[in-house]
Simulated assay, not measured.
Amino acid sequence: MQRVRYETNGGPDVLFTEEAAAPLPGPGQLLVRVEAVGVTLPSVLHVREGPAPGPLAGEVVGEVTAAGEGAGIQPGTRVAGMCLQDAYAEFVLLDRGMAAAVPAHVRAAEVVALVRSGLVARGACTAGLVGRGESVLVTAAAGATGVLAVQLAKAAGAERIVAAVSDAAKAPFALRYGADEVVTYPRMPPQHPVEVVLDGVGGELLGPAVRSLRRGGRLVAFASSGGSVDTRELVARNASATGFQMAALAGDKPGLFACWRDELWDWHRNGLLHAPVHAQYPLAEAAAAHQAVESRRTQGKVVLTTSGD
């Protein structure tokens, strides 16, 4: 099989394709013939910043070809899940707890656009207690997670959704998927403060994000890039800040994780939730996919494919 790896840190050009034997599933594991892999920002950052060599993680969708003892899913089942090791490959191993059956009719690229990003967006909206009639600011609103957070906040009854994007050219995209207004970094906070900020950027944007809150507001941070929150700003606003990580939820509350996953599929099937795909690249062009993510010009999910899907 083909797989993509890296041995030193750097830009997308350090990625290379090699031939390798397909892995063997152990107890509780599934061997999956991959249709598509989602490219995540954390994996892109790991390649650039370390450690090296390190895992190339990503959301995968494909057909189970073999199952280890106790895996509980039969070969021939189409599944999706988060692969934490060697996800950029024609065959991958999925832990049973991270895999779930997915509809046969949904395009592979849409599946991986919804698997992780949808759960992160769902969790962020829940952590922020987004309620009917409230106003919500979503950062990175044109990204794979942000565009889903905009839609889910609208579904939760938010009255006003402000999409924060890095480039004004992304404004039509954010508006198309439910935003009511758009602001660009670093021109924040918006003219009128909001009850909830869902932040997928972190870093230096956390300060403006907190200043976007009205009194009693809530900030939810779910970015992998980290950053610091000035508690004086929180105190001045009687505001709160919390974090959300999808992997922690899957480990701590697997029942809730599964429930949210089923909800996302129901909403998608009924046309209430759309998972836009920015671009698809063949597995051998992983470097181009990473370059697209690093450019911060994407609108929706970047996907690697191993087939003609």
Rank of each mutant, 00 (worst) to 15 (best):
V79L: 12
V14Q: 09
V138S: 09
A52W: 07
L198F: 11
G203D: 09
G97C: 00
G226V: 03
I161D: 02
K170H: 12
T126L: 15
A287Q: 05
P75M: 11
L264H: 08
R218K: 12
T17F: 01
R132P: 03
V115N: 11
V111I: 15
L129P: 00
V111S: 07
P189C: 11
A104H: 08
E181S: 13
L152M: 15
G10T: 03
V293S: 03
P75K: 09
K253E: 14
V150I: 14
A89I: 07
H290S: 04
A284W: 00
T77L: 11
R78L: 14
F222W: 05
E285N: 12
A158E: 03
P254S: 07
V293L: 13
Q151S: 11
F222Y: 15
V47T: 13
T298E: 08
A108Y: 05
L41C: 00
T298D: 00
V112D: 02
V147L: 06
V115S: 10
G72D: 05
S240C: 06
L94C: 06
R107L: 11
V61Y: 06
A99S: 05
L256Q: 13
L114W: 06
Q245Y: 09
D86R: 14
D180R: 05
C259F: 11
Y185R: 14
P189L: 10
A155M: 12
K170R: 10
E90M: 05
V162E: 00
